[in-house]
Amino acid sequence: MKEVAFGQYYPVDSFIHKVDPRLKLLFLIAYIVAIFLAKNFYGLAACAGVLLAIVLFSRVPLGKVLRAVRGVTFLVLFTAVINVFFYRGDTVLWGWKFLQITREGLIFSAFLVLRILLLVVCSSMLTYTTTPVALTDGIESLLTPLKWVRFPVHVLALVMSIALRFIPILSDETERIKNAQKARGADFESGGLVKKVRAVVPILIPLLLSAFRRADELGDAMDARCYMGDKHRTKYKKLRFTWRDAIVFFVGGALIAGVVVLRVYLGAPV
C-alpha cells in the first residue's frame, strides 16, 4: 500500500528525463571536469548557465532542487569558513592574531562554494531525472568494454537490478517488523547508545532471516527460469541514442571547450 519514494526520482515527463542514461552519466562526468577546469568566474558562470537550462528543461520544481543543496550545508559552510579565515592574500580587510580575512580569501571561498553547489545540483539532477533502473542500465552499458579484461559486468548489473527490486521490499519489511515490535512495547527512541543498539536486535534478526529466506526463494525462481550466468545469454533491452542525446552531447562538448577557452584567455579569479 505505502509507496516508497525510492531514490530521488522526480516523475515528470521532460526533455531531460528522456535523454539516454548513458549520455547523462557521461555528461555529468564532463560537467565535473568542466567545473574543475574552470579557473575563473566566467567559466563557472558558463557552467551555471548550462545547469540552469537543465533545471528549467527538466521541470523539476526549484524547491526540490534546492533541497538537494540543503544536505551539503555543513560542507559548504565549513569550506567557506576555513577559506575565509586561512587563505593568505595581500589585501587584508580584518585581522586578529593568526586569523585574517583578505579580499582574495573572500573571492576564493566564494569560488569554492560555487563549485560545490554546482557539483551537488548537477549530480542530483541526474538522480531526479533518471529512474534507478535506467541508471543501472546505463552503468552496465558504459562498463561493457570492461568485459574484455574479464570484469564481471553482467553479474554486477544483475546484482544492481536485484538490489533495486528488493530495496523497497526490504524497507517495507523493516517498517513492518519495527511496527510489530513497537506494538509489543519495544522502544527505539529513548536510552543511551548501548540501549539503542540492543533495541535494534529484535528488528535485525527477523530482517536478516527474511532476507535469507527471500534470497533462497529468489535463487530457486531464477534456477527455475534457466539462469546459467552469462553464458549464451541475450539481452532484450538495448539503449538507443536519439536526437535528444545528440543535443546533450553537443552541449556537453561545447561547455568543456568554452570553459577551456575562458580559462586560457581570462586567467585565474584571484
Binding site: 533502473v133 537490478s161 527490486r165 529468489l218 534457466c226 539462469y227 545469454r233 541475450t234 532484450y236 533491452k237
Partner: peptide, 19 residues
C-alpha cells in the same frame, strides 16, 4: 515478491528468455 529480478514488468518477463 520473491520471484522477480527486475523492477519493470517487461524486463522481468524477459529474464528467462534471455537466459
Amino acid at each position: 515478491d520473491n520471484q522477480t529480478v527486475a523492477s519493470i514488468v517487461e524486463d522481468d518477463v524477459a529474464f528467462g528468455a534471455e537466459n
